Each structure stands twice: as C-alpha cells, then as structure tokens.
Simulated scan of single mutants.
Amino acid sequence: MEFLLAILIGLLYASGLYMMLRRSLVKLIIGLILLGNGANLLIFLLGRITKGKPPIIPEESKFFLDAYADPVPQALILTAIVISFGLQSFAIVLIKRAYKVVKTDDLDQMNSTDEFS
C-alpha cells in the first residue's frame, strides 16, 4: 500500500511541476492543485497508514499496546487543505483579473504589461 502511494505521490509531483512550467495560467493553477494534493498525500504517508484504534490510552495502562492512528498528520493535512483552498481561490481571482486586463492567459505575452495601463 505504501509503495503504491509513493508512486502516486511521485506522479502527482511530476505532473504538478510539468503543468506549472506550461505557459498558460489555467495550467499553472491545475499544477498548483496537483502539487498540493501530492504534498497532502506525502504528509499522510509519513504518518504511517494504520487501521488501528484511536489514540486514546485506557485508564488501566500507561502506554499504547496496539497500533493506533496518529492524529498529528491528519490535523496537518486538514490545515494544509484549508490553506491550499485559500491559495487556489486567491490565484483564480488574480488570474481572472489579469485575463480581463491583458486579454490573454499566455505568460509570455503577459511579460510586457506596461503597454496596457
């Protein structure tokens, strides 16, 4: 399972970087989304995948005896999802505004924006 997730993370990172290096702003946003999802899966994989019990220590024992689900990576992923959603929504609004001004989504044509003021 971990091996398949590692391959999936590599594919998400590779496709995200490939899309971010394209000339279109829409592809840049798609690449940003793919890269964020790859990072979330990487955090999830680093927390070890266990089908264990919740991390609650019974009163009669002083330490965990069974495998348990680590709550820290899950909390980090939830935080990362909220932050990436905010970043993506800001980028989409920014790209929409840039498209209205420049009338193109090609990054090479956006280099000379001084003419359009």
Rank of each mutant, 00 (worst) to 15 (best):
L34V: 03
L11S: 14
L45T: 00
I77K: 05
K53G: 03
L12C: 05
A98G: 05
Y99I: 06
N40E: 14
A69F: 13
A69G: 04
L65W: 12
G52W: 06
I83A: 11
P71M: 05
F44E: 01
N37R: 00
L28N: 12
F85E: 02
M110H: 05
S15I: 09
G16T: 02
L94K: 07
F90N: 00
I49L: 14
V72A: 11
L87T: 05
F85I: 05
K53D: 09
S61D: 09
A67R: 12
I57Q: 09
F90C: 00
G38R: 09
V102W: 11
E59L: 13
D106E: 12
N37Q: 09
V102G: 01
L94I: 00
I7R: 01
M19L: 15
Y13W: 07
Y18N: 11
A69S: 10
I57T: 12
P71E: 04
N40S: 12
M19E: 09
T104E: 10
R48K: 13
I30P: 01
V26K: 11
S84C: 00
Y99N: 09
A67C: 06
V82H: 06
P73W: 06
I9A: 02
F90E: 00
I29M: 04
L11W: 07
G52K: 07
V101E: 14
G10Q: 04
R97L: 13
L45R: 02
G31C: 07
A80S: 15
Y68G: 07
G16K: 04
A6R: 06
P73L: 05
G47S: 05
L17V: 06
E59G: 11
L21P: 00
S84N: 08
L42N: 04
K27C: 07
P71C: 08
L87V: 10
K51T: 14
I33R: 01
R22C: 01
G31H: 08
F64Y: 15
I56E: 11
K100T: 04
R48L: 09
I92S: 03
A75M: 15
R48V: 09
P73A: 03
L107Y: 03
L11T: 14
I29K: 02
D70Y: 10
L17I: 07
V101I: 15
L17N: 12
L107M: 12
L28H: 11
L94A: 14
I92K: 01
R23N: 13
I29S: 06
M20G: 00
L12K: 03
T79H: 11
Q74F: 15
E59W: 08
G47W: 01
I95W: 00
L32T: 02
P58F: 06
D105P: 00
E60F: 12
A67H: 13
R22K: 14
A6N: 03
I77R: 07
V102K: 11
